[in-house]
Design a protein around this nucleic acid. Sequence first.
DNA 1: AGCACGCCGACT
DNA 2: GTCGGCGTGCTC
Length: 704
Amino acid sequence: MELIAVAVNTPQHSGLGDVLTYRATSAAAPGTLVRVPLGRRETTGIVWARCVAAPPADQLRDVIEAIGALPALPASWLQLVEFAAAYYQRSIGEVALGALPPSLLGLDNRQMERRVARAAKGSARAGHAAPGRGDALAAVRAAVETPAGDPNDPGLAQPPLPELSAEQQAALAALAEAHGRPLLVHGVTGSGKTEIYLRAVARALEAGRQALMLVPEINLTPQLEALVAARFPLRRVVSLHSALGAAERARNWLAVLTGRAEIVLGTRLAVFAPLVRPGLIVVDEEHDPSFKQQEGARYSARDLAVYRGRLEGVPVLLGSATPSLESWQHAQSGRYALISLNERVGGGPMPRLRIVDLRNLPRGGTEREVLVPALREAIAERVGRREQSLLLLNRRGWAPVLHCAACGWKSGCAHCSAWRVFHKSDRTLRCHHCGFTERVPRACPDCGNLDLAAIGRGTERLEEQLRSLLPQARVARIDADTTRRAGALQAQLAEVHAGEVDVLVGTQMIAKGHDFRRVTLVAAVNPDAMLFSADFRSGERLFALLMQAAGRAGREASQAAASEMWLQTGYPDHPLYRALARHDYPGFAMRLLDERRTSGLPPFMHLALLRADAARAADAEAFLQRSAAAAAALSEAAGVTVYPPVPAAMARIADVERMQMLVESASRPALQRFLAAWAPALIEARAATRGLERFAVDVDPLSF
DNA sequence: AGCACGCCGACT
DNA sequence: GTCGGCGTGCTC
């Protein structure tokens, strides 16, 4: 009889130790899946590579069976999971089992055998190509199969590669010489970051290794997949993200673990891809907040990617036009290598920034005109020239709130501390936080006044106003409402690419990554809304969004010179806009870093949030108070500050009151030691607090 | 978190 | 008389 440690999916606060001990007839290698009894049920666990304090022998139960049909997960994968669990204060089992495709978790060994065999056969049938790659791949394969030159030339297995600029060559040299340091590639849209990624991927593949590429959003994977498939027509590319069907996700994951997949593309969950021969990790748009998981184990896929790179001894490439201040600071301090790409490949300049001072304009009626006359003219000119314009407004719906001038009623949500948004298309008031939807009332529900005013403007209204301002233009809108159906976004983007749209209105969804070739004007209609947000990262975010939006214009070098980015603002001299006009990210970042240093914020201070949810705010607060009292008694609390409980930025969502408590330390290890020592007290505080629905520790929160 | 057991209201 | 509401407690 052997004793083995098994990670099972129990939450941290269950009071169970992370890894449980079972008896087995024979030892199983760490990383092997096993079926084990747990209470009255049977569950899947993972054999863990360490001894734990075992309970008395009479409490131990036997492993039901080892899932030998699945190759054991690599030792470095176990280490990554163990680090993530410890760092983000979750149980090992939750992180480990949560990183596996759900459809593989219920299987016994026999069923797993069939799944593994089917996945292997499936990939053999598909040959080198992954299914569903689309036309780009077909075109390249056709080109490869009917080469124009010498068919025996092995070079024809690859399409011709673009020439590298001097800056790109320098970046690749820097990557080769990074010696274990992550390489931050800072470059504006069109500066050729992607080409650097592809060259680095090629190197990893030539060395017989797998490459992992992370992107912030599912929306961006098809585009990248087509690009990668076109570049590497003979390599097997798979994607991993939550929008895949259960079967495809499991098949792709198995392809990674069995080593058949050579290039793995995915969203944040792909940072846990079970690579068996890792050779490179790329994090594109590394500043993007989507890399931080916002529920369950609240991990940062970008930070884990950096950790994983060091763990596996594999180069890590972080890319962005507007790096996170965390990464930028690491680059300044020399912890990361840095390469800046200052030229757009093909030589086109970045679009010229035109800042429109709204203060000098007369107000039109009760509200300002939606677009200043000069901007309207500029768009009209482009419509005439068959060029496209892109209007960014980061707010969907028709109006963010309705207001009764007679009694002061506003369209609040009954379940959240938020306004309900007026959507004209279906005449509803919708809460964007809990989904609570009602038909828009004809009259004020409180006083019966028939004249309800719409305050502010969303994309729906902007679209409508544009149609009347520019009757000759074909106007389209892309936001979460128009792209709800599967494939709707791709279909709408295709219309834009086909030139069937003159003016595109949209939320930040349209600012990200899409390669619009005919856009020569981008306008931010109301960027000031984000300028004075309470969130300490709002400046950084706004700069990134505007920079990204600017990058949509003039991607065709021939049009670049005529391309413009317009900003309508009441604060034309704001340093953020001034820096943007100079395309000066480094200057802007230096300024923000100074502010962060003096105000004691990341990356100079390390934060964690203890969040608590309850039906009544008092219960959530009581839990936090108990936790604070326990923290005060800990010797590990030296060098750590615990602030009093406060309501969350969104204090109530779906009838749940949300409170939180900030913990900070100038030392990351000190914060980590404190959190680890604090964890048992949180479980006790939870047991002592009736009415508490849940709590969570959020390490390195994006906002508070 | 599951998944039990355990005691009180409206129905096959 | 049971079906089932979710409160409390346990899982190597």
